[in-house]
């Protein structure tokens, strides 16, 4: 395990010292306080509106991490031959992927933790000054929701590893990652819309069955639905949260196993 722990540590060090990471972390700290300004434009549901904006900010931060920090790391490794050095330490290819993934996933945590704590503080301050419009305890529910929002990004990180192990470099990785990112956010609401009774009535049975089948392999609780519920301080039942966590962790593992299988077989030119 020495080699995996050492590479996780190296990856963390590599990512945490990047200027892009430091900038994102600074933004993560500041943004919750700045969002209080647009929140004050609204009438009643101030806590809900601030939570909505904070969830959106979290999506932006995690997407930036994915595109500007995690994707270039793997692209550099393969394109600029850093992995040649690391693999000839020597390190098995599977262990290299696991360690790089572990390091990248762990690198999200400091930034996310600072963002969640800053958001929680901002929400509690808002609840303190506008108790009529913001329910008490909103900060804590946001902490839960914000933490849960990390899970789809861990699945996407697994998908990024799958893409980059099969791709030849940065441009290809980014194009496919962007497509996967767009699909992962657009497919669930499209499927949900297609299953509305008024739409479902107009489409042939076999398409309807196909849509239902595809929908069954996606998480039952979408992150959009989760964020909306938590913004209104309605915590979904534990069984739903558990299923959501397990489903995303399963996607992450599947993509990671596929990534290892591909990387084991590919030529590193």
């Amino acid at each position: 395990m020495n080699d995996i722990a050492a590479l996780i540590r190296l990856t963390l060090r590599e990512l945490l010292h990047q200027r892009a990471y430091i900038l994102l972390t600074a933004v993560a700290l500041l943004i919750p306080w700045l969002l209080i300004i647009p929140m004050s434009l609204f009438l009643i549901d101030l806590g809900k509106v601030l939570s909505d904006m904070l969830f959106a900010a979290e999506h932006v931060l995690l997407s930036c991490f994915l595109f500007f920090i995690a994707a270039p790391l793997m692209a550099r490794d393969i394109e600029q031959k850093v992995c040649h050095l690391l693999l000839t330490v020597p390190l098995k290819r599977s262990r290299y992927i696991i360690a790089r993934f572990g390091g990248t996933a762990l690198a999200i945590l400091p930034m996310l933790l600072l963002f969640l704590l800053s958001s929680c503080a901002a929400l509690e301050v808002v609840a303190h000054f506008w108790p009529v419009y913001v329910k008490a305890g909103i900060g804590l529910s946001f902490l839960l929701g914000g933490g849960m929002l990390l899970l789809p990004y861990l699945s996407l990180l697994g998908l990024l590893y799958l893409i980059s192990t099969a791709s030849s470099g940065g441009a290809e990785t980014l194009v496919f990652l962007l497509s996967a990112w767009l699909l992962s956010w657009s497919v669930p609401p499209v499927l949900a819309a297609l299953q509305q009774p008024e739409v479902n009535a107009k489409i042939p049975d076999w398409i309807s069955a196909l849509i239902t089948a595809i929908d069954h392999i996606l998480p039952h609780l979408s992150s959009g639905r989760l964020a909306l519920d938590i913004a209104h301080q309605h915590i979904p039942p534990g069984i739903q949260l558990g299923a959501y966590t397990l489903e995303h962790l399963a996607y992450m593992l599947i993509t990671l196993i596929l990534a290892i299988m591909i990387f084991e077989r590919r030529d590193l030119t």
Partner: peptide
């Protein structure tokens, strides 16, 4: 219209709350 709700749910993607806020603005 009949399909407007579906269209807007699709466009809102993972951020239905934020898009609802935007409608208020």
């Amino acid at each position: 219209g009949a399909n407007s709700a579906s269209w807007h749910r699709i466009v809102a993607g993972p951020l239905p709350g934020l898009w609802a806020d935007q409608a208020i603005l």
